[in-house]
Amino acid sequence: VTLKVGVLAPEGTNWANSLKKMAKEIREKTNKKVKIKFYFGGSQGDEPDVLRKIRVGQLHGGIFTGKTLGDINGDVRVIELPFTFYHDRKKALGIVKKMEPFFNEKFAKNEFKNLGFFEIGNVYFVSQEKTDSLKNMMGVKIWSWEGDKLVSTMIETMKFVSVPLPLPDVLSSLSTGIIQAAYAPPLGIISLQWNTKVKYVIDLPISFSVGAFLLSDKAWAKVKPEHRKTVEEIAAKYVSEVNAGNEKDNSDALAALKSQGIEFLKFSKEDIERGKGLRKEVIGKLKGNLFSAEALKKLESNL
């Protein structure tokens, strides 16, 4: 069986390289019975396109970020609530691990098999304008990932300007002025080359971004039972390799941004406090809507 998997991470990144090694090892250990074919760099489209293609059966899986995971299982988004972990990514990752069985159960209910959660990293705002306070962010055209309810709710709550776009269009839209600001983990900022179009980074991680390697149940059923364990084990091994790699790539990326002369902006104490208030408001709007009260409770009890 050949499993076709769409990935946004571009070819040549450490992430892509680890995935290639994963595919190779799986092919070898299953005597070429299970082949995984990755389509890197969004060549199969943005994540929603990949998800649609899985649903009509053209593709079999995807490496998705939280936004698209949330389209399948909204509970995952509690991890990405703004102003929850700040710089503490270790704590965030620990909670993801603790909640993994809970999430996987819901993925299974929605016809997906999860081969593992990725740490993508802390999410930063990048901007062409000097957005060093919430007030200065008013009127700046901020990208929001098309269909991302969490981010669009957050931006609307703050009364900021958001422009929904597919991820592959962000770079060109930054240079044509369709948007002036965007958000991503540092490794994403570098590998998508947004660093060439922005001048400022807000030095305050707003959220912790997770990803996962999902296969459709239909595709997973085609993998012979005797191979499933092998696939799961090899996947788990490379998921931790990717996570370690991503941690390093993120800190390297931050250093690279600094050395390129991109200015790191600090928010005032008051603005950070207002951020906490914002978090409550966003939760109020999304609880029972995007994610369940149960998921939120599990998160809070672990904090």
Binding site: M138, G139, K141, S152, E156, K159, V161, S162, V163, P164
Partner: peptide
């Protein structure tokens, strides 16, 4: 509307 810092999020889509 953008001159007055107003965005209607439904216009784009």
């Amino acid at each position: 509307l953008r001159w007055f810092n107003i965005t209607l999020h439904w216009i784009e889509p």
